[in-house]
């Protein structure tokens, strides 16, 4: 059953078509990768799903509910969380507070003006930090963490919303091969343990073909192929425009 359905979604930026009538379905429980060259519209696609941008037309349905045009903070509450390609944390707060705030928001405690905050969700925060391997860094200032650790922190923040579906935008961008391997192992582990449906974009094809159940290829704002890794790998058009198609393109 599709948990997330996108129906002919379209987005135009001052004459430049970023997403061109894309339809797409994410099956419950799958790990699905979106790949495509830079500028293909992957991040725009994520922004349209999560409410950061409004589509010009088309609809987004999550868990049977129309979420087109809904504000991001409402969409998160329905169980659709995301991480960002560029680091997106609260730099001057502690690592602990970064995650704790997400839990406060999940529990809808953030309008409680007279409930002291420090002790809220203490244990769950520590658990989440341990889960992503930041157990020892809880009291450090988030902005001073190493890059790879900031990425893990982002993952913990996204997980704190207790999502059904997790959207990860380039979860290993800027990481060393070793960090990438560790990070992917962690993501796989969490996905299984929490029964998450995962939609992610990724530039590292080893990672993509290693963990994705299905792959969709976005090119110039259009999904040109979608299917199992083998099907996508052997797709003529995908080979031509994207995967190692340089020899053909040059010819």
């Amino acid at each position: 059953m599709a948990v997330l359905e996108i129906d002919t979604v379209h987005k135009n930026f001052g004459g430049f078509v970023a997403i061109n009538d894309v339809s797409f379905a994410l099956e419950e429980g799958e790990t699905h990768a979106i790949i495509g060259p830079n500028g293909a519209g992957k991040t725009t696609f994520f922004n349209l799903i999560t409410g950061h941008l409004q589509p010009d037309h088309g609809s987004v349905t999550f868990d049977g509910r129309a979420i087109t045009g809904m504000a991001p903070h409402r969409i998160v509450k329905l169980g659709l969380a995301r991480s960002f390609q560029r680091i997106n944390i609260y730099p001057r707060m502690s690592v602990f507070e970064n995650v704790q705030v997400a839990l406060i928001a999940r529990d809808a405690m953030h309008f409680k003006l007279f409930t002291l905050g420090a002790a809220l969700n203490r244990d769950e925060t520590s658990e989440l930090l341990a889960l992503v391997g930041l157990g020892d860094e809880a009291n450090e200032v988030a902005g001073e963490l190493a890059y790879g650790k900031q990425k893990q922190l982002e993952l913990a923040i996204a997980l704190a919303a207790n999502p059904k579906v997790l959207l990860l935008d380039e979860p290993t961008a800027g990481m060393s091969p070793q960090e990438t391997a560790e990070s992917i192992r962690l993501i796989e582990q969490i996905t299984v343990a929490r029964g998450l449906t995962l939609l992610f974009t990724e530039h590292d094809m080893g990672v993509v073909f290693g963990i994705a159940d299905r792959i969709s290829v976005l090119h110039h704002g259009v999904i040109i192929a979608s299917g199992k890794p083998d099907e996508v790998r052997n797709d003529e058009e995908v080979r031509r425009v994207y995967l190692g198609g340089s020899s053909h393109a040059a010819a």
């Binding site: 999560t50 950061h52 504000a71 991001p72 903070h73 409402r74 998160v76 509450k77 969380a81 995301r82 960002f84 997106n88 944390i89 609260y90 730099p91 001057r92 707060m93 507070e97 970064n98 704790q100 705030v101 997400a102 406060i104 928001a105 999940r106 809808a108 953030h110 905050g117 420090a118 923040i157 996204a158 704190a160 919303a161």
Partner: peptide, 18 residues
């Protein structure tokens, strides 16, 4: 606490449900 998060990063705060 949540207000400080809003100050630090409004976008991210929105995406955790604030």
């Amino acid at each position: 606490r949540t207000l400080v998060a809003v100050r630090e990063n409004r976008t991210r705060a929105g995406f955790v449900g604030v």
